[in-house]
Simulated assay, not measured.
Amino acid sequence: MVLDQVWATFIDHLNQAQPIDDVKKTHMAGTPFLYLSVSDEIENKEMKKIIETAAVQSMKGKRLHFEAIFVRKDQHSHVYRCRFFVPQEKMFCCGNFCHDCIRFRN
Rank of each mutant, 00 (worst) to 15 (best):
50 I>G: 04
12 D>I: 03
75 Q>S: 09
96 N>M: 12
20 I>Y: 01
36 L>N: 04
1 M>Q: 04
93 C>S: 03
106 N>Y: 09
61 G>H: 10
74 D>Y: 02
65 H>E: 15
46 E>P: 00
19 P>H: 05
61 G>D: 12
68 A>M: 02
92 F>L: 09
83 R>V: 03
80 Y>L: 07
68 A>V: 01
92 F>V: 11
88 Q>H: 10
29 A>I: 06
47 M>G: 01
30 G>W: 07
5 Q>M: 03
8 A>N: 12
86 V>G: 00
67 E>P: 00
33 F>Q: 06
33 F>T: 11
82 C>F: 02
47 M>H: 01
5 Q>C: 00
6 V>R: 06
36 L>C: 07
90 K>C: 06
76 H>Y: 12
5 Q>R: 06
102 I>V: 15
84 F>P: 08
87 P>L: 08
77 S>G: 00
42 I>A: 14
94 C>F: 02
96 N>L: 13
85 F>Q: 03
79 V>Q: 14
47 M>E: 01
12 D>H: 11
26 T>D: 11
81 R>H: 07
84 F>T: 04
49 K>S: 12
82 C>D: 05
56 V>C: 01
1 M>K: 05
22 D>P: 00
3 L>G: 00
104 F>T: 10
97 F>E: 12
11 I>T: 03
55 A>N: 11
79 V>A: 04
68 A>K: 03
33 F>N: 04
44 N>K: 15
96 N>G: 01
23 V>K: 06
34 L>T: 03
34 L>A: 11
98 C>L: 08
41 E>L: 07
78 H>I: 03
104 F>Q: 12
23 V>E: 03
24 K>V: 11
4 D>P: 00
84 F>K: 08
92 F>C: 05
27 H>Y: 14
37 S>K: 15
